[in-house]
Nucleic acid binder design. Structure first.
Length: 136
DNA sequence: ATTCTTACA
DNA sequence: TGTAAGTA
């Protein structure tokens, strides 16, 4: 499986994402309403987030912690295009089950690895400092 | 036990 | 944003 595909696999429920990002479910759903993230849904309408979603949520959190509002966050991260638009395959379900059995420490380590492997370079670094002044 | 939507202090 | 209510 390609990395791109793996990072877009929708596999964790909101509870896991809450631990991974330190954000409340309330905030996570709120950001979804503003289309900053687009998690998929299970048959039972439960949200399933991918590593890319978690990644974006962490970027959002960084901005929010700096006092930037939704309008500002949207301008910087842009509206989510087509993240997490992958079907809920059997493989995804199995991986989701594994994720649920991990300890908090293992989850953080997993996320850390995933984020370091990820193709980055812009979003996280350009965020700090001067830019936060353009909004409020 | 978890998550979902809606609505209001 | 937090939280209570009523579900799925």
């Amino acid at each position: 499986m390609s990395d791109e595909l793996r990072r877009n696999l929708a596999l964790f429920p909101i509870g896991i994402v809450q631990k991974l990002t330190e954000l409340t479910p309330r905030q996570i759903r709120y950001y979804e309403q503003h289309e900053l993230i687009k998690p998929t849904r299970t048959e039972g309408n439960q949200r399933l987030f991918s590593f890319n979603d978690v990644e974006r949520l962490l970027e959002i959190k960084k901005l929010i912690d700096q006092g930037i509002n939704m309008a500002g966050v949207k301008k910087m991260l842009g509206e989510t295009e087509k993240f997490s638009e992958l079907p809920v395959t059997e493989e995804a379900k199995q991986e989701a089950q594994k994720v649920k059995e991990l300890t908090d420490q293992e989850l953080h380590d997993l996320l850390k690895q995933e984020l370091m492997l990820g193709r980055h370079g812009m979003s996280s670094s350009l965020i700090r400092g001067e830019l936060s002044r353009f909004f409020h």
